[in-house]
């Protein structure tokens, strides 16, 4: 497989802020690649460099075999972009913006346009200023997903969508799987898990982990709390179970995701009345695995140290 995006040692500073600090990223052709990192970790900055909007201070980046800074117009014919902060022209309707962006890219797939509008339940006759954040995002998503391009670059595309629309979005991306390369930035682990073939995790402008979801499974941990019919038994000794707390018939613990199965079997043995489980948040993941690699106190933002 060839690389759709390959970035190495990328550095970008804004005054004293070191937004990118030697970032690496490799996206293979045809895959859905998750670009995961907490707020301020440099996702949008990386994407802007890839789009030729920002000029990197050091490092190299190549996009669809070209140089993002020099071959802009040529490369932009082959990609569609959804910004993290979609802002529309107040006087243009959503439908007009979709057509405009589509035409600027060289044309839209009319059938997909109509279909996506319906699925996203978006009224294209409303003026830009009257759309909510989520609806502005839908406008940009319809324009991008209905374009016949090789590469989709989506910067936190679901941050304004409700869960129902998020499901529509995931469905739409799944339909395109294999036909398009997708770079999907997000700070939500669960979203990336649901969609992506491979993931790169960044922190403070640096890549800390990259691989398939299975590769990263060891990193994640699920918190489980359950109310059982009888007293819990057999959990204490299990591998991968942490922070076990038992209170009568109630039990709370955390379990490494690759040991989830055994832990649940142990619960079922005692009879389950109620069960809630929570996927780990990205922040928890970072706290657990990368704490010592980070400068003290830096929980957000990529400040230079």
């Amino acid at each position: 497989m060839t690389a759709a995006i390959s970035v190495s040692g990328l550095v970008k500073t804004f005054g004293p802020t070191r937004a990118l600090d030697g970032l690496d990223l490799a996206v293979r052709e045809g895959e859905v690649h998750g670009f995961l990192g907490p707020n301020g970790s440099g996702k949008s900055t990386t994407i802007r460099v890839l789009l030729g909007l920002l000029r990197a201070d050091a490092g190299s980046a190549s996009l669809l075999g070209g140089d993002p800074w020099r071959d802009t117009a040529e490369l932009h014919r082959r990609l569609a972009y959804v910004p993290g902060d979609v802002s529309l022209w107040p006087n243009l309707t959503g439908g007009e913006v979709i057509d405009l962006l589509g035409r600027l890219r060289g044309g839209l797939n009319e059938k997909r346009r109509a279909e996506l509008l319906e699925r996203f339940e978006l009224d294209p006759r409303k003026k830009g200023r009257t759309y909510s954040k989520g609806n502005r995002q839908k406008v940009a998503l319809v324009a991008a997903l209905a374009s016949d391009v090789e590469l989709l670059i989506l910067d936190e595309p679901t941050s304004g969508l409700d869960p129902l629309m998020e499901a529509v979005f995931q469905e739409a991306v799944n339909e395109l799987r294999g036909e398009r390369t997708v770079l999907l930035s997000s700070h939500i682990l669960a979203e990336v898990e649901a969609l992506c073939d491979r993931v790169s995790i960044i922190r403070n402008g640096r890549t800390v982990e990259t691989g398939t979801l299975a590769d990263l499974r060891h990193l994640t941990r699920t918190s489980v709390s359950a109310e059982l019919v009888g007293a819990p038994s057999g959990l204490a000794g299990l591998p991968g179970v942490h922070d076990l707390a038992v209170e009568g018939n109630r039990v709370r613990f955390e379990v490494d995701t690759d040991h989830l199965d055994t832990a649940l079997r142990a619960l079922v043995g005692s009879g389950v009345r109620a069960l809630t489980s929570q996927p780990p948040t990205l922040e928890e993941l970072f706290l657990r695995h990368y704490e010592d690699e980070l400068p003290a106190g830096a929980t957000e933002g990529a400040m230079s140290s």
Binding site: L92, T93, G95, E96, D99, L104, P124, R125, K126
Partner: peptide
Amino acid sequence: PTRLGPARAPRSLGSAFGL
């Protein structure tokens, strides 16, 4: 209240100049 507008862009709105 802002009225609804056209669902499709006119032909003229398809280039940097048109915008």
